[in-house]
């Protein structure tokens, strides 16, 4: 009897505890949830509202103009150029980081000497600020009066007998192929000045991708590969049919992480080129900053910010929702 009593008392107490604990749990997460609700969703709503007013000048205006500001910015050649640049930057940055990251991960993973040293060197730029990266690479890619009186990396090429490698780098004004299309107020193609910026960004982030892939590679059980090898598979076949598919989730994470960094890129470009030459390396983040705070066109700046947000959301939201669904299934 006594025993039965304690047994029955126990679950009751547990249930009461559970209720209290649930309340505590909710109370613990509430401040964060509230902060995010205000600082993320509230502010986004506020910015969305600003983007539909005619706020110009230093005093706030609240008269509603609908989507006029969006029409205005999409019709300017400058914003169209920004979008082009952003696409080029993102594509090159993502592709290079993934390829180089994977390559380095595979090499570091191939039982080499001084593995730790190589790995550490490849990853260290990740610890730096984009501002530091920008300041240093701005120097490296300042072409000087080349080919005769070069500076930076051009000078290094000249001194090491590789003078033919000299280029205009960040001052290259070409857009390749630079097609003109009726109704589009920018030249379609790859702005060459963007390449050095991509190099600097890849320098900074590819080590991070390598680390991610390395983690993935180390997580693949050696037995599976060994079994395939016993069955007569070549190393390349093992890599293609076992390693790569198993790394897919990592690639997806990397794309999301790099993708959103890329779509938001600001610091690096401000320091390295400031958007020059012309607007050839300017991205929406810079444009927003300049028209908002320099030209006092707050409403148009807000519209640019909202466009950036939508682009990032288009990349990220499906991933987040997909992630959530698979989690629930698990």
């Amino acid at each position: 009897m006594r025993q039965a009593k304690t047994l029955s008392a126990h679950p009751a107490r547990r249930v009461r505890w559970m209720h209290r604990d649930r309340a505590i749990a909710l109370a613990m997460i509430a401040p964060s949830a509230l902060a995010i609700a205000v600082f993320v969703y509230g502010f986004i709503g506020w910015t969305a509202y600003i983007s539909m007013t005619d706020w110009r000048g230093l005093t706030m205006s609240t008269s509603f103009v609908g989507f006029d500001n969006y029409l205005t910015i999409f019709n300017t050649g400058r914003f169209q150029t920004n979008i082009r640049n952003l696409i080029v930057f993102t594509a090159f940055f993502l592709a290079s980081c993934l390829v180089i990251g994977l390559l380095l991960a595979v090499l570091v993973d191939s039982r080499i000497r001084a593995e730790g040293f190589f790995r550490s060197v490849y990853i260290f730029p990740m610890a730096l600020s984009f501002i530091v990266t920008g300041v240093v690479w701005q120097w490296l890619f300042a072409p000087g009066n080349w080919p005769n009186d070069p500076t930076g990396i051009n000078l290094l090429f000249k001194q090491s007998g590789l003078g033919f490698l000299q280029a205009a780098w960040t001052t290259d004004t070409n857009v390749v192929p630079g097609w003109r299309i009726e109704g589009v107020r920018t030249r379609i193609g790859i702005p060459m000045a963007m390449i050095p910026v991509v190099v600097a960004a890849v320098w900074q982030m590819s080590g991070f991708v390598m680390a991610m892939y390395l983690a993935g590679l180390r997580g693949i059980p050696e037995e599976i590969k060994e079994a395939a090898r016993v069955d007569g598979a070549t190393e390349w076949q093992v890599f293609r049919t076992i390693t790569l598919p198993m790394l897919q989730p990592i690639t997806l994470s990397a794309v999301i992480i790099l993708g959103h960094i890329s779509l938001k890129i600001f610091d690096l470009i401000v320091t390295m080129t400031g958007g020059a030459p012309g607007n050839n390396t300017e991205v929406p983040g810079l444009y927003m900053y300049e028209i908002t705070f320099k030209a006092n066109k707050f409403a148009e700046g807000a519209a640019v910010a909202m466009v950036m947000l939508v682009v990032v959301a288009l990349l990220v939201a499906p991933y987040l929702i997909y992630n959530r669904r698979t989690e629930v299934e698990r």
């Binding site: 400058r78 004004t173 020059a276 012309g278």
Partner: peptide, 19 residues
């Protein structure tokens, strides 16, 4: 005014690049 200066400035910076 500054709103004009920004537009004027950008027009010429683009010009400095593509002539």
């Amino acid at each position: 005014p500054e709103a004009y200066m920004t537009e004027y400035g950008n027009a010429l910076n683009v010009f400095a690049s593509d002539l």
